[in-house]
């Protein structure tokens, strides 16, 4: 009954729960934002509205893995910002996704092009 250690590299976390996590990191790449601003920004660029519970579950995991950090705030809305580790993880993840996208588009173009 050997315990499975937490992923040492942040890419591991991002790879497994890439949905909300990659959207949040992509949004924070533009600057620090609080929860509601994150929801609105993600809705504008991805067309999906992340529900509050899902958003904070992802935020707490990303914070626990050091990919984002909370900033001090004067009011109750606490903003979060991307860390260097989070930026590296997002970059690595997006590079992989870019390759997948390119391969998929190339194969579609060669095999499923309109006659």
């Amino acid at each position: 009954m050997k315990g499975t250690p937490e992923p040492a590299n942040p890419e591991g976390l991002l790879g497994r729960s890439s949905g909300p996590a990659s959207l949040i990191l992509s949004s924070l790449a533009d600057g620090a934002k609080h929860g509601y601003a994150l929801t609105k920004d993600i809705e504008s660029f991805a067309g999906v509205r992340i529900a509050p519970g899902t958003l904070y579950e992802a935020l707490s995991r990303l914070e626990a893995h050091g990919m984002i950090e909370a900033l001090e705030s004067q009011d109750r809305r606490r903003p979060y910002r991307l860390t260097a580790a989070g930026a590296a993880a997002l970059s690595s993840y997006l590079e992989t996704q870019k390759k997948v996208t390119e391969v998929g588009l190339r194969r579609l173009a060669s095999n499923w092009a309109p006659a």
């Binding site: 609080h34 929860g35 509601y36 929801t39 509050p52 958003l55 904070y56 935020l59 707490s60 009011d75 109750r76 809305r77 606490r78």
Partner: peptide, 16 residues
Amino acid sequence: WRARYGEEFAELLAAD
């Protein structure tokens, strides 16, 4: 969890 995220999460919920 509420002690750490409660206030900010309540703000988000109220806005939502």
